Computed example of a mutant assay.
Amino acid sequence: MGSGPVVVIILSHRDPDQVSRLAARVASGADTVAVVHHDPEGVPWSAPRSSNILAIPDPRPCRWGRLSLVEAQWRSLEWVTRAIPEFSWALLVSGHDYPIRTMPAIEAELAATRHDAFLRHFPIGDPADDVDPWQAFTRRRYLRRRRLPFSARSVPLPFSRRHPYRDGTGLYVGDMWFNLSAEAVGAILADRPLSDRLLRYLRHAPIPDETFICSMARNVRPALDVADDSKRFIRWSAAQAHPETITSAHLPDLGESDAFFTRKVDMTAHPEVLDALDQLADDRARRGR
């Protein structure tokens, strides 16, 4: 893999103090750049004067479950390739994520890997091949539903939509939190016919961020070596729409995880957690883990 800086793209919209704390921790790496896309309609945030904490100019409003979130990812990748052309990897996190390993340790693993990307994903093909109930749910979401204009609701269609997942193009779903090598970023940005088709189709799809990058990464040719792992520590409670908030109770499991980041962290509700995560990462680095 390339030897340039690792770029961590931070999508944020509130909690400016926490965003600054995250950016500073990311920028503590030997060769890492924090790039912040901060929603202009969110709580204001100002980038510090730093050569390795950068704010993406002209950020756009982002809405959960809308194509604007995908467009923010896409525009961020395009900006990174122009502003930091020598980068080696691009990682996407939210403003409520936080590293659980030191950035030099993350840099070292990315430099040594044979993979082109780390991205948790599932193929949505023949229902008989499903291994997780989520596959059936997302099959309906992306192939048989449509989001109502100006609404958070989606409705079933009386017939299957004509979709772009045919003639060798597969539908994949997974986490939006990607880890892409420079080679992978270059490959997906270069395939404009594929990205244009998917973006047009997903404009009216529910939750397009859970399929766009996955489908791009798994469909470009030549094929990329994509590890099925987001490198994120996330815990879900039963029937919850959002991940658990990380507390001190999670520290033992975090110490055993090989993930790069955890989510979600809330500095207001649990101000002690970020210091504990810094200490955890530093202790692991000293032990060589």
Rank of each mutant, 00 (worst) to 15 (best):
N52Q: 14
R66S: 10
R60I: 10
R63S: 11
R63M: 08
G65I: 04
R60C: 09
H37G: 08
E41R: 12
E41N: 14
C62A: 10
W45F: 04
S46N: 07
P48V: 05
P48E: 13
L67S: 01
H38Q: 00
G65Q: 02
A34H: 08
I56P: 02
R60A: 10
S50L: 10
W64S: 13
V43W: 05
G65C: 09
A55R: 09
I56H: 07
P44K: 13
P59C: 01
A34V: 05
I56C: 06
V35P: 08
R66L: 11
H37M: 09
I53D: 09
C62R: 07
R60D: 10
H38V: 00
R63I: 11
S51F: 11
S50E: 15
P59W: 03
R66N: 02
V35K: 03
W64Q: 13
V36D: 07
P57L: 04
W64M: 13
I53K: 07
P59V: 00
D39H: 14
S50K: 07
D58N: 15
D58K: 13
P57C: 01
G65R: 04
H38S: 06
L54G: 09
C62H: 10
W64V: 10
P40W: 02
R63D: 06
I53S: 05
P61I: 05
E41P: 10
A47F: 08
L54P: 10
P48K: 03
S51V: 11
T32A: 15
N52E: 12
P61A: 06
A47C: 15
V43G: 00
S46K: 13
T32H: 14
V43R: 00
W64T: 14
P57M: 03
R63Y: 12
S50V: 11
S50I: 12
